[in-house]
Each structure stands twice: as C-alpha cells, then as structure tokens.
Design a protein around this nucleic acid. Structure first.
Lengths: 253, 253
DNA sequence: ATTTGCTAGTGTATTTTTTACACTAATAAA
DNA sequence: TTTATTAGTGTAAAAAATACACTAGCAAAT
C-alpha cells in the first residue's frame, strides 16, 4: 500500500450563514472574532469539525451554541478550499445556510464569539477570511431556493400576514411583486392555513393571519413540486425582448 | 493562541461524477479500483487533493488524467464527510459533476485506474465507499440543472437533431416529452443555430442538424434566464389535482 | 414504379396561467 | 364624520402550455 500520510495534514471547518428576516429586511447573523487571525473582524459563525464528528453535526452544533436553537432549517451549500484561505495551514470549509425566525433567537451566554449581531445582508462588507464569498454563495442559493421550495416560512413567525410574506419575498429576491398576483399564486398553492384571526394594534384595516401548512407541503413533495415567482414585467423594450424569448419546460410528477 | 494542531490530521479528496450520453441512455464513467480499500470495486474517479492544490484544480486534474479532456463543464455539487467513510482516517470528499461528449472521450494510458468504463446511470449499484450516494446527489443536481440551464448541450456532439436533444432530456428527466411542444419550446428560446444540413445514412426522412448558440446564451444569462420542461400532463386524477394546485412565481430581470 | 414503414416536422384549437390595473373594505386617528 | 392607510377582490386581455392530428421525405420492400 502506498503511503498516504502526507495527505493527512489538513483541517476542516463549517461556516454557517444564518438568515433572519426583520423590519422588512433580510439579515445575516455575524460574530465578532475574539481571536487571531482576523481578530476583531466580523465573520460567519463557524468552527473546526472534530475528528469524530459528522459535517452536519458540526453545523448543528455551531448553530445551537450560538442561538440555542435546535430544529431549524439547515442545508449544505458549498465548500471553499482555496490553498491559502487560512493562515494556520490547509483548512477547507463547508458552508451551510440556515433559516431562523428572528423572534426565537436569543444570544447564548456560552457563545463562541465576543458578540453576535444581525446585519442587513445588503450592507455587509469586509468579513474575515473568504466569508464574503461564502455569504454571497448562500444568498444566491436562498434566492434560488425560495422560488422552488416554500422555505420562506422558516423566516417568518408562526402567524403572518400575506403582506409580510410578500415583503419577505421581495427582500430575498430584491424585486417588487404585484400584490394581487402574489396573493392569487400563494393562495392557489393551498399551503397556507387561514387562521381566521386578524392583526391587532394597527392603525388601519387589520390583516388576516395565516400559518404554513407543513403537512400539506409534505404531500406535495411526494407528488412533484415547483414554486416560482414572477416579477412585474419590465417595460424596458430591450429586457422585454429577451424575456419574451425565454422558455420553460416543467416536469410535474 | 489556542493550539489547533489536533485538527490538522485530516485529508480530503475530490470525486468526479462524469456524465455522458450514448445510445439514448445517460451514462456515468466509472473506474475499477486497483488498490485497497475496495480493491476491484467500481468507483467514481477521484483522488486526494494535494496540499498546495485548490479543490477545483484537483477536480480538473482527475478529469484530465482520466479522459484527456480539458475544457469541460464542471461544477461542485456537495461534500461528503461521514466520520468513518474511509478506512485510512478522516477523509472528506468534495463531489464534482461534469458533463462530457462521449465521442470526445478516449481512455488515457496514464490512467489512475485498472480500467474505466461507461455505465448506464440507471443500472449502477454496489460502488466503493459512499459513491452511490455521491452519484445520486450529482444525478439529482443534473436533473434539476437541466431544467433551468441549457447544460444538456454539453452532452451532445456539436451537431445534433431535435429528436436527439429530446431523447437526452427524456433520459435525464426520466420521463416522456411531447414532440411538438418540446420543439416549439426549444426553438422559441433562440438558442439553436439551424445548420441547414441534414443527417446522412438513415433509412427514413433525414433530420435537420442544429448546434448550440453559446454566444446567445451568454446574453440571456445577463438578462435573467429560466429553463423548464413540462411533461405530458398525467391523466391520473389524483396527480392532476396536485399538479393543478402547484404555483410558480418567476423573476425575470 | 409503387407501396410500405419509418421518422421528421407542422397547424391549430383549447385550456390554463400570467399579467395588469382598477376597484372595494375596514380600521384608527384626525 | 372625514381622512389616511393598508387589506383585500374582480376581471379583461395576453401569453403560454397542452393535446392531437396532420403532412413530408427518405430507403427498402414489393
């Protein structure tokens, strides 16, 4: 047997892009680093993976240590392994995307970080390591995902209004959506349960509250599922020309 | 500074799921392992990543050593890192999906493997390590991708007929498509160049040959792109009921 | 020379979905 | 009672998807 010892000199970490939604704005949870390298920089929460620990387990651990949350949406997105991305040696990192309801979140005292804070995704800059690239990859994944899977609900409180849901989509997709059509589409999916309750304490007509029908979604998954959103069609003739030659071929089943 | 030496004891590999299309069937290129562990098993082509080598570079290297091909479609899919997946120690692997034109492929003498061979994706079983799971992940990715990006062309020879293209889609999506509608959709995308040439040596009306318009695709990417395929709608009432409550929301821009 | 078998390729009516836009409804504060 | 503000609806017109039956062109068989 050839000797492979030379290869067993690397480490790997997980980094977690934790998204939340608040005040009509998509946020990401960042920590301020308390050690070198990049001491004092904002960074994605992450940690080395232990020798006897699976990747997903490590990602769940990081999430739990930071937020105290256990059962949240978590998905592996991609792996970053540029040779010199870490000064300690060869460290590749597996990026995870998670979606949490901000209202559930409380900073944990046993945290790995000096401090943790929500930042508007659109305003983040200058993170430690290659974390900006990781954030971008996860944001791109979220943008994609939200069109085909009803993951948006993971970011909202259990009860929400259709307008809140629309604002969430608009924040993630960075676009405006048409109210009438958005509602028609969402309701036609039969994935919302009308709680026959309304908002309280608002200075205008109170909106109806809904919750996500998880059971119904499970049934859809079994039978093939597609979930897309259309922005108000642009008036710009150039764009329109391109859009009109776009084609789709769906498979359902 | 805390001592992190304990973490620098791992290795990582890349594994490459190389798809090809031949005889109306989707194939994957497998190698027969010439060393332990799993000596003699079929496996995905892969290799350890060198200390001074980027992940993508390693994937490209493996592909070149096996096929001699250089400029092919290659995409990172996901990373597998279960604790005991490799008997030498902790080894995580980054899975890549690549698409090649089978006609371009010739087995390289300097190959890493005892032998390499195309296998029908639908018939593969019993691979080394967790390679079945990796293959499944990459196949799922391809199935998804092909609906939204015109990557199918990477698998066809430079000149192809619409029927060949349809058969490719049918093989990947594991479904039947309706000829008239498939053609309408594909042609409406304006991504094919009509070569005004026809097949030769067939015992029936010869089909027209097309090639993929790469330049036009670049323009589409800039302006937002969507690519889907719809299967002939099922007659089964249960399925139909579900399909009719599926909703889509597209963003173009 | 004609027929047969086969695959290529087209026309189009119908249904479904998308899009756009203007309308009505309900609440608190002025 | 009026005003401001957001919630929520009706619907016509356009576009896209679907289904299905048709015609076209070639070689081999008769």
């Amino acid at each position: 047997m050839t000797n492979f010892d030379g290869f067993f000199k690397s480490a790997f970490t997980v980094d977690n892009v934790i998204f939340g939604f608040d005040e009509g704005d998509l946020k990401v949870l960042l920590i301020k680093r308390g050690e070198e390298p990049y001491f004092g920089y904002w960074a994605l929460p992450g940690h080395f993976v232990y020798q006897e620990e699976d990747l997903d387990t490590a990602a769940i651990r990081v999430l739990r240590e930071l937020t105290g949350l256990n059962n949240v949406y978590l998905e592996q997105v991609s792996t970053f392994g540029a040779v010199h991305r870490h000064s300690f040696g060869r460290v590749i990192t597996v990026a995870y995307c998670s979606l949490i309801k901000i209202s559930n979140y409380t900073i944990q005292p046993s945290s790995i970080a000096l401090q943790a804070q929500w930042h508007s995704v659109s305003k983040v800059e200058n993170l430690a390591f290659d974390h900006i690239a990781i954030l971008q990859a996860c944001f791109a994944r979220l943008k994609w995902l939200v069109r085909y899977r009803p993951v948006g609900f993971e970011l909202l409180p259990p009860k929400f209004t259709l307008t809140e849901l629309q604002h969430l989509y608009e924040a993630i997709l960075e676009t405006k959506l048409e109210k009438r059509n958005f509602r028609k589409k969402i309701l036609s999916m039969d994935l919302l349960i009308d709680l026959v309750e309304t908002q309280e304490g608002v200075a205008h007509r109170p909106a109806r509250l809904y919750k996500f029908d998880r059971k119904r979604y499970q049934k859809f998954l079994a039978g093939g599922f597609s979930f897309e959103l259309k922005e108000t069609r642009k008036k710009d003739p150039q764009t329109k020309k391109i859009a009109s030659s776009v084609a789709k071929i769906n498979v359902r089943g």
